[in-house]
């Protein structure tokens, strides 16, 4: 386990304990690592790398929604690469491509270069626009506009608790719809 992986595990532990800054730092650091692996795998299968950002976002959603399945006493990296591999396989399968992706391909250490997304996550965007109105509004206010839970609650006439519930539901709905798409 190298320093980066040790840091990831620490950040996830802190995140699960309620440190959202550490958690955000973790997601910001794993995103480019995921992007690099996914792009390389897609290119390896001769699949369009235009779908990279969709798969990165689907994986981040899965990491978030399933983070309680990670054991805090184990290293984060094997868990993360398994989630990433499963999301890539699901994504390709839904599009009729049967692939065998050995987990070893994900476990390689890639330098986390400050790579920028080349394209938008078109599918995520499409499903986002079809979310129930309230979920879409809350998600957009917090993620896209960068408002706090409190500001969003005041602006939308909701309690902060209701905003939190709606935000979580929005992510769960988005993830479920991305998964069931054929």
């Amino acid at each position: 386990m190298d320093d980066r992986e040790r840091r990831w595990s620490e950040w996830m532990r802190a995140g699960l304990a309620g440190d959202s800054a550490a958690y955000e730092g973790l997601l910001r650091e794993i995103a480019p690592a995921l992007r690099a692996v996914v792009r390389r795998r897609l290119a390896g299968y001769g699949a369009a790398t235009a779908e990279t950002e969709d798969i990165v976002q689907e994986t981040l959603l899965a990491v978030h929604l399933k983070r309680h399945t990670w054991r805090p006493d184990s290293p984060l990296a094997p868990w993360l690469w398994t989630v990433a591999r499963n999301k890539l396989v699901d994504h390709l399968r839904q599009r009729g491509r049967r692939v065998h992706v050995p987990i070893e391909d994900f476990a390689e250490l890639i330098p986390a270069e400050p790579e920028r997304p080349g394209t938008d996550a078109a599918e995520v965007e499409r499903h986002l626009s079809r979310l129930p109105e309230k979920q879409r509004a809350v998600l957009s206010a917090i993620a896209v506009d960068g408002n706090s839970i409190g500001d969003t609650a005041a602006r939308m006439g909701m309690t902060p608790g209701a905003v939190r519930v709606t935000l979580h539901r929005a992510f769960a709905t988005l993830s479920a719809r991305l998964r069931s798409e054929t």
Binding site: R28, L60, K66, H68, P117, G146
Partner: peptide, 21 residues
């Protein structure tokens, strides 16, 4: 929604599931 924006949203969602165990 850009990936950076998604991450900002995810970091503000503090609700986590429960372990299957």
């Amino acid at each position: 929604m850009k990936t950076d924006e998604l991450i900002r949203g995810l970091a503000r969602d503090e609700r986590a599931g429960r372990a299957p165990e």
